[in-house]
Design a protein around this nucleic acid. Structure first.
Lengths: 357, 357
DNA sequence: CCGCTGCTTGCACACGTGTGCATTAGCAGT
DNA sequence: ACTGCTAATGCACACGTGTGCAAGCAGCGG
């Protein structure tokens, strides 16, 4: 089950000592200043010595100490990324987009999870500040007014991704998807299929997107001249904001939706829609012939599931890329812009006209 | 679509100046040494001044500079985590386990993607080294002999997670799941259901796990007295090691498996099994009644799909936690141990006895 | 020969924090 | 009063790198 570790190293190489520009300087018979300049290709140093020192650095296995550089230059080339849940398939893609752009700009990424808890979110951000990151990205931020003060201390360029805080503050920048538009697209699709009794299932763990998608849902109904009914709307209480929790919410929400007599359900996200699908499977309800289901996000899984899920695509990787790009602009002293991305309806096989009466 | 950024700050607060212990010392009328000691609760400082300075630090909004601390103490309290793909649902959980343990130990995590490319893997590790991380974790490492030399320079405690390199080197520590055992469990399950013609579908993008699972598959067949047949084994060529790529491999592999006349298929991982399921759905093949399918990993999606997938569960979060724990042991100068975790069969609804002849 | 210019190099300091050693003050014992 | 001891504090240096300024050297025109 286990084997002992290798502890001894090649003798003669002193384990502890990382070589520095001072070491190179000693060997080359110059000052550490010259080495520093030579390695940065400074025109102040003659071509000849430059080459010689660079060659020497290579031979001696020199690796610049980014810590010392950071202390001197007051830039760490590092950003912090806070997400509610690392294993969430939606956020995974956002993280991927962020890392992609960050790396191509020479920045490293600190990743930390907040578990949808404002207290932990603050703690994570304070850790980022201690480490003197150049910028901060927060996905699905729960920061509210009471925490705002504690953050005012920290003067670090920050961009929010799909912020869940009800009141945006103007100090921060943001990138988000247009929830209201997305919800309208989904519900209009159901209306066009002929549905007249359409339910909405959301969760309290992401209050802002829940509210905005509900508003879009209501707006679409209103445009079609349908009166909203309270029993068509199910908001599940939840704190955790994890994929497992979302599936569970979906499964539990099916009953009250069925008793409300809807022929189609629009869900706040794909995981909840999958919960609905699973509950339907258990109860022998055929989707889409007896009930239509629409999700939100278009996570990878949505196209793999049977039946493939009709949903609203959030440009997830783009969201991450764009947020990072905005942060880069801020770091280059340019004026950052807030962006709202348009989502897109993806029709698959979980929606159909309502069953004939 | 966009709005201008807030640029002006509250007047009077100098944006640029982060306050340091020297600033506190000036205000308190003591030396920076005393402040440093007071903040670290050194017994050298009197109770009285200690309290006074800590209070002052709080009022002045002091945040310790981790960069300067790192330079002095030669420890960054930082680790690097390299993964092939950030959006991979398997790795997401591993990352989550790692971050969980790291954070509770006061360490921050650098995350970077290698895209299954040894060249990029080296580059990522070199970046980690420049930043002087205290330790490194690599998931699904592709490091082979030719790169080994370049890594010997870097003397940083390193733990590999499910290494894909064919030849382990003894310099590094590792944590892995027992692929051979997992494959045997899966195939023995199919044999017990009565299957005699069982296929294996793998991908060349993860050579080691592919080979080991193939060996487990062959061992199980041999134990049952069945001769292995070449046409039962399909290895898809792939480089990328992304979830999308895996699904595609599965979809493409179905045809050759069907023409080989198998009644059950064991897949190298869940995403490939999902590809098989999707291809079956298109062609109207009923799973599990006409064909049984078994996956590997037990990712979240496996239980959400219809039919729920029979698969071999890798303890993913445990894998991440354990790897981080081993790294912590190494950092505390304890002797690290290599671990092999046992996987577990999870029977769901994608397997059944073979169709009657 | 002098002064000027351009090229190359080094000195000395800065970044913010931690720590070995010396210093001072206070106090008790003889 | 002198010695010895403890508690509290500060000095000075270290960590590894970047940079303003001065200095040295060579060449060149006057």
């Amino acid at each position: 089950m286990s084997s002992p570790s290798p502890t001894s190293r090649i003798a003669g190489t002193r384990r502890s000592h990382e070589i520095s520009i001072a070491d190179i300087a000693r060997v080359a018979g110059v000052s550490h200043t010259t080495v520093s300049r030579a390695l940065r290709d400074s025109p102040l140093i003659s071509q000849e010595t430059r080459k010689r020192i660079q060659q020497l650095a290579l031979e001696m296995g020199y690796t610049p100490n980014a810590i010392a550089q950071s202390l001197q230059t007051r830039r760490t080339s590092t950003i912090g990324l806070a997400v509610t849940s690392i294993a969430d398939p939606f956020l995974s893609e956002v993280v991927r987009g962020v890392e992609e752009i960050a790396r191509s700009a020479g920045l490293s990424v600190f990743l930390s999870a907040t578990h949808n808890d404002p207290e932990q979110e603050i703690a994570v951000i304070e850790t980022f500040h201690r480490r003197r990151v150049d910028g901060i990205l927060v996905a699905s931020s729960r920061i509210t007014g009471e925490y705002k003060q504690r953050l005012d201390q920290i003067r670090v360029p920050t961009v929010l991704i799909n912020s869940q805080a009800e009141s945006q503050y103007e100090l921060l920048h943001s990138v988000a998807v247009d929830d209201l538009l997305g919800a309208r697209l989904a519900v209009e699709h159901l209306l066009a299929l002929g549905h007249r009794a359409i339910g909405y299932v959301g969760t309290s763990s992401r209050p802002r997107s829940c509210r905005q998608r509900l508003e879009g849902y209501q707006a679409a109904l209103a445009s079609a001249g349908l009166a909203p009914r309270e029993e068509w709307v199910t908001i599940m209480a939840a704190e955790e904001a994890s994929p497992q929790e979302d599936v569970l919410c979906g499964r539990r929400a099916l009953l009250s939706q069925l008793s409300a007599g809807v022929t189609a359900i629009f869900c706040q996200n794909d995981m909840m829609a999958i919960g609905i699908l699973m509950a339907c499977h258990r109860r022998g309800i055929a989707v889409p012939h007896e009930l239509s289901v629409v999700g939100f996000d278009d996570i990878e899984m949505a196209s793999c599931i049977i039946p493939p899920l009709t949903t609203v695509r959030q440009p997830r990787i783009e969201l991450g890329r764009l947020a990072m790009q905005v942060l880069l602009d801020l770091l280059h002293e340019q004026e950052g812009r807030n962006h709202v991305l348009a989502p897109m309806l993806v029709v698959r096989e979980s929606t159909a006209p309502p069953p004939a009466l």
